[in-house]
């Protein structure tokens, strides 16, 4: 493996970590909007809407911070891939059912006017991030990581 691999993994970590932390952080200031965004998918019973709407940003931020810091990179990358898979499925199902909603990926969300939906772009972005997550889980060794585990993996690479 070339010496560029670990730097590519670092880039992937910073990209995924940055996106996840940003996406989580913007959902915290307006919890009512977060609830409406989750409810608008019409996938969850009302009792689960609140916990998911409020818990999801915490998970996003936790996974994102682990990736940014470079701690438990493989686990965090798998968690990130799982999150992206859930998002793709949810947005795809909203699209397939003809709902007119914003994905609420970066705050906001809920219903939008007809013609204001952006499903292709939202799905394409999340699929892209899903592939980056999977690649990072396959080759987690990276530069500028705090976690000790990655250092030994890096040693194997060299």
């Amino acid at each position: 493996m070339s010496t560029l691999g670990p730097w590519a993994a670092t880039t992937a970590r910073l990209l995924l970590g940055g996106v996840l932390v940003a996406a989580g952080a913007v959902k915290l200031p307006d919890p009512a909007a977060a609830e409406r965004a989750v409810r608008a998918y019409r996938l969850l019973p009302e009792a689960l809407v609140g916990p998911v709407a409020f818990g999801l940003p915490v998970v996003e931020i936790a996974v994102g911070l682990a990736l940014l810091a470079g701690v438990a990179v493989r686990g965090a990358a798998l968690a990130s891939a799982a999150l992206m898979a859930v998002f793709v499925t949810a947005v795809g199902s909203a699209w397939a059912r003809g709902l007119q909603i914003d994905c609420g990926c970066f705050g906001g969300g809920g219903q939008v006017a007809p013609g204001q939906t952006a499903y292709p772009g939202e799905v394409a972005r999340d699929v892209g991030l899903l592939l980056v997550s999977l690649a990072l889980a396959r080759w987690p060794a990276s530069r500028l990581a705090l976690g000790g585990r990655a250092e030994t993996e890096l040693a194997d690479v060299r």
Binding site: L28, P31, G50, A53, G55
Partner: peptide, 23 residues
């Protein structure tokens, strides 16, 4: 790992409780 998991659960519970209260 255990410490991180416990911490995550505690933060989750606190945030969900706070946001539920806010809404």
């Amino acid at each position: 790992g255990v410490v991180a998991a416990v911490l995550l659960v505690v933060v989750l519970v606190v945030v969900v409780a706070v946001q539920t209260h806010r809404t």
